[in-house]
Design a protein around this nucleic acid. Structure first.
Lengths: 341, 341
DNA sequence: GTGAAAGCGCTAACAG
DNA sequence: CTGTTAGCGCTTTCAC
């Protein structure tokens, strides 16, 4: 519990010098610095971040706001962000907005604003205008992952293109009866993700001259069970069984694979399945997918933030960075089997 | 960005009164309080947690240290802890010790000790003696989830009993050829979890007068694929095919179900499967399991912490609270089928 | 290159 | 019940 005075005393210098020596701000002779460092080590001294923050106005801490924690995508983003922050000497304080509107307000009003954080990363969160203005007014950079946010620096994946890539993959294998399991309207609020993916899918179809068939479309909740149920509907249609399905998430795609098995359909011989995510289970199920890289997304968000935290840059303002994605072909997709319908 | 002085001025009182009115420490007349609150609202005033912490020595912030983030169990604990902390007016700062020893040291030396947290929760982490002493020396309560920690208040599940319950369930259904898929030695460091579960399993067997057969034992890595592979080994044995398997985690149990299907075995007609966790996918797969409730664990850890943070209590010291668990029977376990081996 | 001293924004005695 | 005042532990001019 040693304080800066004790270090100063032990090193035989003033507290000002200790501060300079340890923080690297201001010049200190090498000899003095060495003595200070040794003294600090000896006493197990660590600066009090509170005192330091109070004096400097910087906290070396960023807040991350997320709607859920215990789902693969979100926790992976978090993991990526955490490690990158640590690397930059920043702490991470976490706010889960899972609860209701009240909890949400409370987080914004009472927590984020306590000057506890230098910046905020919002994961897949549609911030309201008052929320963003409030943050920006305090001169705290924000970066959003997942969608356009007025006045905010964002990173997001081009969902339309991602979906189009998935469907194009299926088309390139000769499929023409391609079903789509999209997200339902509960997920629309997340930057219209279901719609964007559906649009991508349909535009690929249209570009290939294949009419969009509403019977080959189902919505679900992004879960494995949801995908399973939706797939059963699709596969059960005796007149129009798809030879391929593109699910808007890997969990739904895995549900689709399981539904196919339960109906005696072989994947990929009888039906090809592709998802989006590259979920941790995708490899095990041999699922072809368009990977998005959540850990990388978390890391990238931090990098962007660090740039904005640089005293120089004032690059605030709406500006979106496209996130990478990549087709990964495993064993759930294959050339359409022409020997049977 | 208003400060306390402005609020004081607007309300026509001293800063001390503002502080008292807003924090609830010390008496303030209702009328004055109302005026202060109104003034604060009007100015959008929020206390600076840094200044407040510096003055009080309390941060209203707890650190959570976890070895992984993007796995169901850990992120669920985190979710539970987060919401409970929020409810108590605490922030949560997150430290992921996924990296190497260096990262771990860095977290302990430079982050936790910066006086940024009032207490720490360690999830499934074996803290070294120096690490705990260092924390306890600073008078920061620690609570550990997952195993005994010398000198630390812990919450943990009785893994031996949990495993015994699972195996007893199988025994009660008439099974005698019961295999066990346990964790491999990489997971031993987590409080000997694999061994404890194995011991529970074997003690149930022995209590039932059934000899422990090493051929009915496999180890794996707690993953679905790992369980799948291990189960194939078990089911593939032509002389000694188990009629039931108890896997030390739900993911491995699900892998086991899938392996059974791939080998043409029906679950539960030909083979019963039980796991531990009540993983979010367990319900979908109809998996019987012994539930442990990670979110609840997170919440309980916070409750214990809050108690220790009370100025009165000095209940530090080794003391373990047993965590609840519960058998959940779904469709993956059934009475042994005597019509075939 | 280094020291003295004035805060950073709040809280907690201590008076009254 | 409320005001005055002295810090909490650092950082940062401003001198030297």
């Amino acid at each position: 519990m040693a304080g800066i005075d004790e270090v100063a005393e032990l090193a035989g210098v003033s507290t000002a010098t200790v501060s300079r020596a340890l923080s690297g701000n201001g010049h200190v002779s090498d000899a003095t610095r060495a003595r200070v460092v040794r003294a600090a080590d000896e006493l197990g001294y660590v600066v009090s971040s509170n005192a330091s923050s109070l004096a400097t106005g910087r906290t070396k801490n960023v807040g991350i706001v997320t709607p859920v924690l215990n789902q693969w995508f979100y926790s992976s983003v978090l993991q990526g962000a955490e490690s990158e922050l640590l690397k930059n000497g920043y702490d991470l304080t976490l706010y889960n907005l899972g609860g209701g509107a009240e909890e949400r307000r409370s987080v914004f009003e009472h927590f984020l604003l306590r000057k506890r954080v230098d910046a905020v990363i919002a994961i897949a969160l549609e911030l309201t205008a008052p929320e963003t203005t409030r943050l920006l007014d305090m001169n705290k950079p924000i970066v959003g992952i997942g969608g356009p946010l007025p006045g905010v620096r964002t990173l997001s994946i081009d969902d339309v293109s991602v979906a189009r890539l998935a469907t194009d993959h299926l088309l390139s294998l000769g499929h023409t009866m391609i079903a789509h399991i999209g997200g339902n309207k509960d997920y629309e609020r997340d930057f219209h993700l279901p719609t964007n993916r559906r649009v991508g899918h349909e535009s690929a179809l249209e570009a290939a001259g294949i009419p969009v068939d509403p019977e080959l479309f189902q919505t679900s909740d992004f879960s494995m069970r949801g995908g399973y149920l939706a797939a059963k509907q699709l596969f059960g249609n005796p007149r129009k069984r798809p030879t391929a399905v593109f699910a808007a998430s890997d969990e739904m795609a895995i549900g689709t694979i399981l539904a196919a098995r339960d109906l005696g359909l072989r994947v990929p011989e009888d039906v090809s399945v592709i998802g989006i995510d590259d979920h941790y289970l995708a490899d095990f199920f041999g699922l072809s997918t368009v990977a998005q890289f959540p850990e990388l997304q978390g890391r990238m968000a931090v990098e962007v933030l660090m740039e904005q935290l640089l005293p120089s840059s004032r690059t605030q303002g709406t500006f979106n960075t496209a996130l990478p994605y990549e087709l990964i072909v495993r064993s759930s997709t294959a050339r359409v089997n022409t020997r049977r319908s």
